[in-house]
C-alpha cells in the first residue's frame, strides 16, 4: 500500500578540492514513501545538505554512480528545462538561512515561486487564486498580518515561516527542509515544527517531507529517522520512548 515517491539509489557524490577528491556520499540510499515525514540526521559535514540538493535536483550525483528517482523517473534522464520544471513543481526547498529576497515583501517572496513556475502569462491568469493561496498559507503560518513587511522587519522564526509558505506555494509533492530550525532557539524551532506539522495535515493527502537536522529532538517529530554516516544512509535506532 505504501508508494515510494522519491528514492536515492547508491548515490555517490564527490567534491573536488584542487587535486584532492573529497567523497561525501558513498552509496547513500534512501526511499521516501508518499505522505511520509523523514528526518535525516548526521554530524556536521556528513553530507546532509548535499543529499538534499541531490534529491531536489539542484545538483547531480557523480556520473554513473547512483541515481535519484522521482515517481520512478531518473532525474539523470531529465534535461535542464525538465529539471527546472521539477524544482518548480515537484519539490519545495526550505533552507536553514531562510534565503528570502530582501527587496521583496513577505507576500511577494511567497508568490515568487509561483511567478517562476507559471511565467508572466500563466501567473497573470491565476493571479487572484495564487494570491489567495499565498495569503492562506501565510495565515496558516501565523503571518496573515505581515504580508507587506520586508524580511528585515521579521524575526528569524517569522522569516522561516515565510520561507515555508514560499516552498509550499506550488503544492510540491515533496517538501525538502534543510535544518529549518537550525538558526532558531528551541522554542521558536518548536513552533516551526508545529507549523510544518499543521501544514502537513492541511492539504488533502499528507505532505511528504524530507527534513535534514542534526538535532535528535527535532528528528523525533518525524515518522522515521535515518542517519548519514560515512557517506551512507543508515536507519536510526530510535530508542522507544520510555
Amino acid at each position: 500500500m505504501s508508494e515510494t515517491i522519491l528514492e536515492a539509489r547508491q548515490v555517490h557524490k564527490t567534491y573536488r578540492l584542487g587535486r584532492v577528491d573529497v567523497p561525501v556520499l558513498r552509496g547513500a540510499s534512501l526511499r521516501v514513501e508518499r505522505g511520509e515525514w523523514v528526518a535525516v540526521l548526521g554530524a556536521s559535514g556528513s553530507g546532509k545538505s548535499t543529499l538534499l540538493h541531490l534529491l531536489g535536483g539542484l545538483d547531480r550525483p557523480d556520473r554513473g554512480r547512483g541515481s535519484i528517482l522521482f515517481e520512478g523517473r531518473d532525474l539523470a534522464h531529465m534535461g535542464g528545462h525538465e529539471l527546472d520544471a521539477y524544482r518548480a513543481r515537484s519539490v519545495g526547498f526550505v533552507f536553514q538561512a531562510y534565503h528570502l529576497l530582501p527587496e521583496l515583501s513577505v507576500l511577494e517572496n511567497v508568490l515568487l515561486g509561483a511567478m517562476v513556475r507559471h511565467g508572466r502569462v500563466g501567473f497573470a491568469r491565476r493571479r487572484s487564486a495564487l494570491r489567495a493561496r499565498a495569503e492562506r498559507l501565510l495565515d496558516l503560518m501565523g503571518l496573515g498580518h505581515r504580508l507587506r513587511h520586508r524580511p528585515v522587519e521579521l524575526s528569524g522564526g517569522e522569516r522561516q515561516r515565510t520561507a515555508i509558505a514560499r516552498a509550499m506555494i506550488n503544492e510540491p509533492t515533496v517538501l525538502l527542509a534543510d535544518e529549518p530550525t537550525g538558526n532558531l532557539d528551541e522554542q521558536t524551532g518548536g513552533a516551526i515544527l508545529d507549523a510544518i506539522a499543521a501544514l502537513r495535515d492541511a492539504g488533502e493527502g499528507r505532505q511528504t517531507i524530507v527534513m535534514v537536522t542534526h538535532a535528535r529532538e527535532v528528528a523525533r517529530r518525524a515518522d522515521r529517522q535515518v542517519r548519514l554516516r560515512l557517506g551512507e544512509v543508515v536507519e536510526e535506532d530510535v530508542p522507544s520512548p520510555a
Partner: peptide, 16 residues
C-alpha cells in the same frame, strides 16, 4: 549570487 541560487532552487531556468 544567493538570490540567483534561490531563484534556481525555485525552478528558474538559466535563460530566465
Amino acid at each position: 549570487t544567493k538570490d540567483i541560487g534561490i531563484l534556481r532552487s525555485l525552478g528558474a531556468s538559466r535563460a530566465g
